[in-house]
């Protein structure tokens, strides 16, 4: 465990050094992310000038859904972004080096592009969340409050786990087919549907977002748990789904590696 922490920090440091070498570009990416975050935020607040609620949620609640989406999404990107590049890693032979090092290849690949800019974008998101939380939880007694916060934290972690599994599934697919890496972008697009509370989508589509592309479980369930509107069977379902996905993805990764046929030099 200590080894993995050290390696992770070193990789993070190296990515940071690389970003410093390309600081204008990095600033641009950071700017773009902030623009996206701020504009969606403005949009969500602006919409409440025209309507009293969205799918039954108040401004605070919708904001909270949006912030939670950002937390899970940013964390997933922070930890797993390296997987986006797996196609290139395979083509250029870097994958071979990862495989002969005494660390888990999935860890090595995921941590290959740790982005400090994500830390920077995470800060305002967390600050805003801290500001919104009291408004949602203000009236609760202490045990109830702790319970909800713990459940929220667990479900967020669960969301990150689901994101990880999806990344691993895509990585396995890429190893198997030597292409398909663009499916990662498809995932990013579908995940962006989680900006709004899942209740804005029709019943059928909500089911798809729960069971097929479990984006709702990933980003909407934590907020619902915190709001106290997620039934216990849904909580169980969330953990059940993520365990199955995780097992499935790790299994597929293992078998993909067996089929891995590295490019010849």
């Amino acid at each position: 465990m200590k080894k993995y922490t050290l390696v992770w920090w070193k990789l993070a440091e190296m990515s940071f050094l690389m970003q410093c070498a390309n600081r204008w570009s990095s600033l641009g990416w950071l700017g773009g992310k902030i623009v996206r975050f701020v504009f969606f935020f403005i949009f969500l607040t602006a919409i409440f000038r025209h309507v009293p609620n969205v799918a039954g949620y108040s401004l605070t609640q919708v904001t909270f859904f949006y912030l939670t989406f950002n937390i899970v999404d940013i964390l997933a990107q922070l930890f797993f972004r390296g997987i986006y590049m797996i196609g290139r890693d395979i083509r250029e032979g870097d994958m071979d080096f990862y495989l002969i090092q005494p660390v888990h290849p999935l860890f090595r690949i995921s941590s290959n592009l740790i982005d400090f800019l994500d830390f920077l974008t995470l800060i305002p998101v967390l600050v805003l969340t801290g500001m919104v939380l009291p408004k949602i939880l203000g009236a609760l007694n202490f045990p109830e409050l702790t319970l909800r916060l713990i459940l929220y934290g667990l479900l967020c972690a669960n969301g990150v786990t689901i994101a990880f599994s999806i990344h691993v599934l895509i990585a396995s697919l890429t190893v198997r087919t030597q292409q398909m890496e663009s499916t990662v972008w498809l995932y990013r697009d579908v995940a962006s549907l989680g900006r709004f509370p899942s209740d804005v989508y029709s019943e059928l589509f909500r089911a798809i977002l729960t069971f097929v592309f479990p984006i709702a479980v990933m980003v909407s369930f934590p907020s619902k748990a915190l709001l106290g509107i997620l039934s216990w069977d849904k909580v169980a379902l969330a953990f059940f789904l993520s365990s199955i996905l995780l097992a499935l993805s790790l299994g597929s990764w293992k078998s993909a590696l067996k089929h891995y046929c590295s490019v010849s030099s």
């Binding site: 390309n22 600033l27 990416w29």
Partner: peptide
């Protein structure tokens, strides 16, 4: 002038999409 125009370009595109009304 710079090999690092990708980031600024990304920022420009996102800003433009919002400001042009391409989201809402």
């Amino acid at each position: 002038w710079t090999a690092e125009s990708g980031g600024p370009r990304f920022c420009f595109e996102l800003f433009l999409e919002f400001a042009a009304g391409a989201f809402f």
